[in-house]
Design a protein around this nucleic acid. Sequence first.
DNA 1: ACCTGAACACCGTTCAAGT
DNA 2: ACCTGAACACCGTTCAAGT
Lengths: 191, 191
Amino acid sequence: MPAPQRVTTASLAATARAIAERDGIDAVTISAVAAAAGVRAPSLYKHVGHRHDLLRLIADDAARELGDDVTALVGSSADPAVVLPGIARAVRAFSARSPRAAGLLFSAPSPEAGPTPEGMAPLIASLLEAVGRATPGDPLPAARTMTAWVYGFCTMEQAGAFQLGGDVDEAFEFGLTTLVDALTGSGGARR
Amino acid sequence: MPAPQRVTTASLAATARAIAERDGIDAVTISAVAAAAGVRAPSLYKHVGHRHDLLRLIADDAARELGDDVTALVGSSADPAVVLPGIARAVRAFSARSPRAAGLLFSAPSPEAGPTPEGMAPLIASLLEAVGRATPGDPLPAARTMTAWVYGFCTMEQAGAFQLGGDVDEAFEFGLTTLVDALTGSGGARR
DNA sequence: ACCTGAACACCGTTCAAGT
DNA sequence: ACCTGAACACCGTTCAAGT
């Protein structure tokens, strides 16, 4: 009589992500996830090929969650001056509530630990859609500029790289206004 | 008779950084660095408190090197429209030739693995100096916007995150022009 | 003063054996 | 079909002992 399955890939993702957020990426070990799932370490190799696959499960879970947020925003308004800031703030909010998963999303410690292209596709599609509405020309360089800034800002903020004091919220809004004004060509007066 | 010192902290930094660039951050283990330095693992604890200190040595070495580049640029011209693009391109060049060290500089896997405030000070001072010349107001938010974008772009480029084709060099120059124009208020015509 | 071997707890991974 | 114990190679870290 076959043994009943005690763990699913989806439950593994949730378990691994919880450990990552509580104790850090380094704590996402085969042993720790197995123990949290109520199973012995070797059993995990029925679901993942190696430890970095656990991180990839977390990354893809994060990509799906953030992709849902962004897609909803893009569907909620047609005005780029509303949608672009909304997306940037959604990314930052996600990064604040799931910093470890967000880190894996954009800068995984290895290619195998990063999200799959399929997992990222909905997020990227919504992003390009939003930027395409804002700029008349090729949306790709504009989207890359926006993405690089948001990603860089959130990563540095979570890594504690902003150590010179000052108001980090203000710096975020300043950068956001600067970029959105420039990309939409609104030339709105700098506050 | 005391044993002669066979390893210095400076030589440790160089050894660790070489391993990081060749085999990745995960390969920077106490054992591997000790072996490369021609010494047994326990000896390293005369120089570092724990493994993450090895990463910190790499990060501070990178901060010093990039700081030298940027400081030289800031001293070479007074025109922000020359210096700011120069800095951005210098960061990108550094990230291209030392991607692992550059990663530690801005988003270390733990606070202990990141650069020390003292190590970052010259780089940050030169950066603020350059941005301060360009904008009339508080240079801090402007510097953070610039830094976040450059860092984000270089990290994503090195991580292979720009997978949608297109010209990555062009995207870099587009973002650079957009930001420098906005920050210097030059309002130069978009090409 | 610096280096070493030995030891400990841990981890990733494989595999034959259980049910 | 899924899970397990046992085993292997490895790693970080400590410490008493060497020179």
